[in-house]
């Protein structure tokens, strides 16, 4: 396996303006994540894990320092360049699933492929493959409001994985799920990580997720407190 860096962060700080001054959400983060890692940003609420995940996902910009993701300096990307980077290279899994409510399962999973201008036949095959990975082939015509929480999150995983991205960012993916569904989903993600060598980065404080992580980056007050790798 080629050991290249997917994420390379140096001296990263993020300030948010408040009424009187500013609030520092990230305070000097230095971090490297290699290709194919199954890592997690772990910490309590307010520790800065979602902010860091958003910057890595090019949804936000650093206030200071640099964040290089897949060879792109996030701070230097225009809004359109950032969108194109997400479109081609990244998959997102959200705590609240964020499925498109008026689309059915097939259409939700197909959406990222439409942005990549793939042909209908290519899209169909890729969607069927992705839905098969998460075990939802019998729910293709269902809409999100007809699915359980676990099924919705599996659709979200299929949507994130369908274009076989280099990096998948998952923000509290099991927060709304019961234990059984959480384990099922994490096993699915782990399997995809191993089969496709996709880098997974989680933001979580859920013990169920933490036990699956091969690397735990523990954040506290916007700083990395510990970086634990499973040997």
């Amino acid at each position: 396996m080629k050991n290249t860096l997917t994420v390379q962060i140096e001296g990263l700080k993020k300030h948010f303006p408040t009424g009187k001054g500013h609030f520092t959400a990230l305070n000097g983060i230095n971090l490297e994540i290699g290709t194919g890692e199954f890592a997690g940003l772990v910490g309590p609420s307010g520790s800065g894990k979602t902010t860091l995940l958003n910057i890595i996902g090019s949804l936000d910009n650093p206030s200071e320092g640099t964040a290089k993701v897949l060879g792109h300096n996030i701070g230097e990307l225009s809004i359109t360049e950032a969108a194109l980077l997400r479109r081609k290279e990244m998959g997102f899994i959200f705590q609240t699933y964020n499925l498109l409510p008026v689309y059915n399962v097939f259409e939700n999973v197909e959406f990222p492929l439409l942005l990549l201008n793939m042909t209908a036949a290519e899209r169909k095959k890729a969607v069927h493959d992705a839905v098969e990975w998460v075990g939802l082939t019998d729910k293709l015509k269902s809409r999100p409001n007809q699915l359980s929480g676990g099924e919705c999150q599996r659709v979200a995983i299929a949507r994130a994985m369908v274009k076989k991205p280099s990096l998948v960012l998952a923000d509290e993916p099991t927060a709304n799920l019961d234990a059984e569904n959480s384990h099922h989903i994490l096993k699915t993600m782990l399997k995809l990580n191993e089969e496709l060598n996709t880098t997974f980065l989680f933001a979580t404080h859920d013990e169920k997720v933490i036990q699956y992580l091969k690397r735990k980056i523990i954040l506290k007050d916007g700083m990395i407190e510990q970086d634990l790798k499973n040997l």
Partner: peptide, 11 residues
């Protein structure tokens, strides 16, 4: 927000 996260440009 989901459209944007999935890679749609603002335009």
């Amino acid at each position: 927000g989901t459209f944007v996260a999935l890679g749609m440009t603002r335009g």
